[in-house]
Design a binder for these strands. Structure first.
Lengths: 255, 255
DNA sequence: AAGTGGTCTAGACCACTCG
DNA sequence: GAGTGGTCTAGACCACTTA
């Protein structure tokens, strides 16, 4: 710690101050790297500096940088490629198009997911949406409605709410032209990357949603409410999805 | 690598053999530790040898043992306690009683979960159960039915299927006496520890299940099918749970 | 051949727990 | 004070990718 001349000095908080606000060096490095991601110094898809360079930049050993990268990679914010480098994860990567979609056919794996946008309009936020997105009731939000299918019948009806100030300029036309996924469009078109989300699931009967899926109004549907965050734990999307689970199921792993 | 005299010799597969069957040293150590867990050399709740001892036992450096323990701790198989030691995770730990239960009240956190066993009987395995548990159709299985509540109305109706040869001797009386959780009873009473599970969710209407929950037969219910594994990826439990999601939701995190 | 991440080692020092 | 896990370093060597 004595012979360093780092560009961004790092302070290893000494013992006396350790409880309760202490974080080890590698976690401080991680925070600095999160800063570089959040401030768009490092953008999706780009290769970040090598571990050796980062070690020099932060004035720590390569092992310490490695531990920070380990955690960021475990959180799917970075992707390592042996021999090539470490890259900022991107929804524009084909393997990540529907990374957050947990719906699977009862037998086999999901193939070619397709999104069919139905409408896109700016409306005032209702109470539930405003609360989720930390906005005042009535603040403009964009409501996007769409269907998802996996080759045959539509299986999901989504109502997606986005803060209008962040995504102003989103139109049905742009959505229809997008051949990748919604999140890749939001990332490449608006510079907002979705990094994680929370979902709440329930079983409901909702005639209007069932109608969009071509089902009788009394059909039970899986209602999936999702709150999605970008860097800095900032909520930027809230959605309600109605899933037809007659031939598909929502899959999770517990450990 | 040359001056080791390990009790359990470890082979670092050399370059030529590396593709595709290669695993680094720390992963081989992890496998050995999984062996110690699966063979019950290390039992739930017990403290395992210190990192220094393990390093000596396996003939590797402490850092390599550390990486193996890191992964096992990340998978919730081991629990580290600074200053005390590393322990085998246990469902008998109060914090783990309902570790696999993802149901939460719409506002706030779940309090005092209670299990009400209804019946426990040995029956021949039907096709779906047999397939899940890798048994022949007709093999004896134990069917346990129960309700869960969280202070008021019952919210979950569970049908739990267990391979009878593994859990023979499980009775309604033992279940009623158990004050912790089903998995803690199965662990302490039968030496089988559940380590992870997969769940499949759908929305259904099921009059008989609704009746157990005191709901109209047409109420939509969240159907949760769970396949649970013990060491060695061996499936030992399959269950169907019907959740009343009027005031509760199933919560997941996506990243 | 050069550069990247992946593995492994050896040793130092720290913080926490317990007797 | 002794023993444990937690952090950090420095250096070696390997495997993979690209040019």
């Amino acid at each position: 710690m004595n012979s360093r001349t780092p560009a961004n000095p790092v302070i290893h908080i000494p013992r006396a101050v350790r409880s309760p606000a202490f974080s080890p060096l590698y976690r401080q490095i991680k925070e600095q790297m999160l800063g570089a991601l959040g401030s768009k110094e490092w953008t999706p898809g780009m290769m970040i500096p090598s571990e050796t360079e980062l070690a020099a930049r932060f004035g720590v050993s390569q092992g310490t940088v490695r531990k920070a990268v380990d955690e960021l990679a475990a959180e799917n914010l970075l992707v390592r490629c042996q021999g090539k480098g470490t890259f900022v994860a991107s929804h524009c990567d084909p393997r990540a198009f529907y990374r957050f979609l947990r719906l699977q056919p009862d037998d086999g794996c999901r193939q070619r997911t397709r999104s069919i946008p139905l409408s896109c309009a700016e409306i005032p936020a209702e109470a539930a949406v405003a609360r989720a997105l930390c906005l005042e009731v009535g603040t403009p939000v964009i409501l996007l409605e769409r269907l998802l299918d996996f080759g045959a019948q539509p299986v999901v009806f989504d109502q997606i709410f986005l803060a209008a100030d962040v995504f102003s300029g989103l139109t049905l036309e742009r959505l229809q032209q997008e051949e990748r996924s919604l999140y890749s469009l939001l990332e490449s078109g608006f510079g907002v990357r979705m990094i994680h989300a929370e979902e709440r699931l329930r079983a409901v009967v909702e005639a209007s949603a069932a109608q969009h899926l071509g089902l009788p109004g009394t059909s039970p549907l899986l209602l999936v409410e999702r709150l999605t965050f970008t860097y800095g734990e900032r909520p930027v999307e809230w959605r309600r999805g109605f899933y037809d689970t007659a031939q598909y199921h929502y899959r999770t792993v517990l450990s």
